[in-house]
Computed example of a mutant assay.
Amino acid sequence: MNTNTNSYAVCFGEVLWDIFPAGSRAGGAPFNVAYNLDKMGLNVQMISKIGDDELGNDLLKQIKSWNISTDFIQIDEERPTGTVLANFDEQGEAHYDIVQDVAWDHIKILPEHKVLVTNAEAFVFGSLIARNEVSKNTLLELIEHSKFRVFDVNFRPPFIDFDFVKTLLGKADLVKMNKAELRQIIEFLGEEYADEDKSIKFIQDHFDLNEIVL
């Protein structure tokens, strides 16, 4: 893709394998956004990192099979490809173990990333990627090069840093969250959760946000 002439979006963050009892599938919230943008016919680039291992090779093959660019997915020779282990309890509720200190925790910023994000129509990111200082600092630097910032809140306990979430809300142009995340953010801000409309209006005014998608 010629990033100088074509409109495109950049998604930043985790690419990984969701491992279920019945099998595995490629995932990670920012990659899911990239996948769906691509299916909508939009140009998209993914900035992430995988391990130099069998899971990483399989992930690259899977992504390429969907004709999604892997040009900006780094290879980590020390840490493994990210995985999420999913199990179900007796009530059928899913529980997720997001394995720590994996490749996507250590996305290093490169000069070409800054150029890529500067020229993109949108820069999409979540909060989980900030659980490690390396990827967190890369995110903070790339945000400053973006002209339109899309924050996909995507809380994943225990990796929730509300102070940093406030920082990201303050830098975003558009924020996407679910109802549970809306309630958590309102409570963290010390407000009473009255109803969705009032809560959204409060967050929108507090952080001077153009739009919130619930």
Rank of each mutant, 00 (worst) to 15 (best):
N2L: 06
N4I: 07
N6H: 12
N6M: 11
N6C: 10
S7W: 04
V10S: 01
C11Y: 05
G13V: 09
V15S: 11
I19H: 02
I19T: 06
I19L: 11
I19G: 02
S24F: 12
A26S: 14
G28F: 06
A29M: 08
P30K: 00
F31T: 08
F31H: 06
F31R: 06
A34P: 01
N36A: 05
D38M: 06
G41M: 05
L42S: 07
N43M: 04
N43W: 04
I47Y: 06
I47V: 10
D52E: 12
D58H: 14
L59Q: 11
I63N: 12
N67C: 10
I68K: 13
I68Y: 06
I73W: 13
I73V: 15
V84D: 05
V84R: 10
V84K: 07
N87H: 13
N87C: 10
Y96W: 03
V99D: 07
Q100T: 11
K108R: 10
P111M: 09
E112T: 12
E112R: 13
E112K: 14
T118Q: 15
N119G: 03
F125V: 06
G126K: 01
S127H: 00
L128D: 08
L128N: 10
N132A: 14
V134N: 12
L139H: 01
I143F: 05
S146G: 09
D152Q: 00
V153L: 02
F155L: 13
F155G: 06
R156M: 09
F159S: 11
D161C: 15
D163L: 15
V165H: 04
V165R: 03
L168Q: 04
A172F: 08
L174N: 02
M177D: 01
L182W: 07
L182M: 10
R183T: 11
R183S: 10
I185S: 06
L189W: 01
E191D: 10
D208E: 13
N210S: 13
E211W: 00
I212F: 00
